[in-house]
Simulated scan of single mutants.
Amino acid sequence: MSEVADTTTEPADDRVSNATPAEGDIPDATPEGSGLESEPTEDAETFPRNYVEKLRQENGRYRQRASEADSLANRLHTELVRATGKLADPTDLPFNADHLADAGTMSAAIDALLEAKPHLAARRITGDIGQGAQGNTGTVSLIDILRGTTG
């Protein structure tokens, strides 16, 4: 048996790949003469720095207002649900902007929630539970209590 040594294989560290990058691969550096430059061309639109900063500040104010509006809308939704008196905890109904525009939609959503989860309904205690203000029982006298008569 004769052994043939493979002399064409080189270690991976010494190889240099001249292959073109596959689709989706990003080359490490821009090849020379490719027409791509790192400097902006004269045709590119640029705006003065102070104008861009002004636009960014204005955009920041709008984002803050939008955040505040979202917060206020959530609070309004919670209070409208609380005003119905149907739920023990008004935050049990998730926020939906449609509920703010149409009271019928909110009422239907609350009814659907209560049908699915009746334990979320508000409970009202009615009747005499033995506490609080009661009708006038007359005068109380220690002597009458000792004699066993009330009057």
Rank of each mutant, 00 (worst) to 15 (best):
V4F: 08
V4M: 08
D6L: 15
T7S: 06
E10D: 05
A12N: 07
D13Q: 10
V16S: 03
A19F: 08
T20I: 13
P21Q: 02
I26C: 02
P27G: 08
D28Q: 10
E32M: 01
G33Y: 01
G35E: 06
S38W: 07
T41D: 04
E42G: 01
E42F: 10
E45W: 04
T46N: 06
Y51V: 12
E53Y: 09
E53L: 15
L55D: 03
L55Y: 08
Q57Y: 10
E58Q: 13
Y62L: 15
A66F: 02
A66Q: 12
S71T: 05
S71I: 00
R75P: 00
R75N: 03
L80W: 01
A83W: 02
G85H: 09
K86N: 02
L87A: 07
L93D: 00
N96K: 03
A101F: 05
T105E: 09
M106I: 06
M106D: 03
I110Y: 01
L113V: 05
H119F: 08
A121S: 10
T126P: 01
I129W: 08
G130P: 01
G132M: 15
A133T: 12
A133P: 03
A133L: 14
N136K: 12
G138S: 06
V140D: 02
V140E: 03
I143C: 03
I143N: 07
D144L: 11
D144I: 00
D144S: 10
I145K: 10
L146D: 07
G151T: 07
